[in-house]
């Protein structure tokens, strides 16, 4: 048996106002996996990520880290919005996690520049966030999440607000980064196509309370070139995932 990076056992989350966001979640994410959580809005996907990140506590069950709880900086998190500090430039924003960790500006420079290069923003270190396009802001957010070389990258519908062209590009970039970096990625989305294209495994979630309805292994080759989106295999798996999603939504 391999040791997963993180395992959730019967995790539930009920908010103080009585809203049952999650119930009976059992799942694990292995080292180096790319797992997607796919489900409609309001099915608790973001809550699940927050529980794993330690930003919220489960009201039932356990989030287990077999190798001990992650130190600060071991988890990278990309929110639905870029969530940048408007008063800092791109460098300041990417530098932030290292700054909080107590690293000096000079010492952090190589790491920040490397992270910016990864997302293709090497020339924009001194741009202000308001001067960037939505896609570029999201890249800054991604660079910030990567700058600490996290063991686990949590992505919460990071490309949901972007146009399709930009989204495809960022998807391709993300896959390339994952291939190079050996990160573990947990990706939340409500797009079937995005989930299937990116992941090794897709967990289909149903709403009220959020729970995992099915797990689909994506049997597509690695690496995945952009043309894959036109292939018959990809289309077939997407159709199966859509059917499963429809079932998950219908069962409530």
């Amino acid at each position: 048996m391999h040791r997963p990076l993180v395992r959730l056992e019967n995790v539930a989350k009920t908010f103080p106002d009585g809203l049952e966001a999650l119930a009976g979640i059992d799942m694990e994410v292995g080292r180096g996996d790319f797992v997607s959580l796919l489900g409609p809005s309001g099915c608790g996907k973001s809550t699940l990520l927050r529980l794993i990140a330690g930003l919220a506590q489960p009201s039932g069950g356990q989030v287990l880290w077999p190798d001990g709880p992650p130190a600060p900086g071991r988890i990278g998190y990309v929110f639905q919005d870029p969530t940048l500090m408007p008063w800092g430039d791109v460098f300041d924003n990417v530098y932030l996690p290292l700054r909080i960790a107590g690293q000096g500006r000079k010492a952090a420079r190589p790491a920040v520049e490397a992270a910016l290069a990864l997302v293709g923003l090497a020339d924009f270190a001194h741009a202000q966030p308001h001067a960037l396009s939505g896609g570029m802001r999201m890249r800054v957010s991604l660079a910030r999440a990567l700058v600490t070389r996290p063991a686990l990258l949590l992505l919460d519908e990071p490309f949901g607000a972007l146009d399709e062209i930009t989204r495809f590009r960022l998807n391709d970039d993300l896959l390339r980064l994952w291939g190079e970096g050996g990160w573990t990625v947990l990706f939340v989305t409500h797009s079937v196509f995005e989930a299937v294209f990116l992941s090794q495994r897709v967990l289909i979630m149903g709403p009220r309370p959020g729970r995992i309805h099915a797990a689909i292994e994506i049997e597509l080759p690695q690496p995945r070139p952009p043309e894959l989106r036109m292939g018959a295999d990809y289309q077939r798996i997407c159709a199966a995932a859509s059917a499963s999603l429809a079932q998950a939504m219908g069962s409530c």
Partner: peptide
């Protein structure tokens, strides 16, 4: 201060003073 940024500071284990200086004050 932006909720998302507050989460981010929590995620990276920022101390009280760091939060005040780098997030709340700006």
């Amino acid at each position: 201060a932006d909720r998302g940024l507050q989460d981010l500071f929590r995620l990276y284990g920022a101390g009280r003073l760091q939060r005040l200086r780098l997030l709340l004050w700006p």
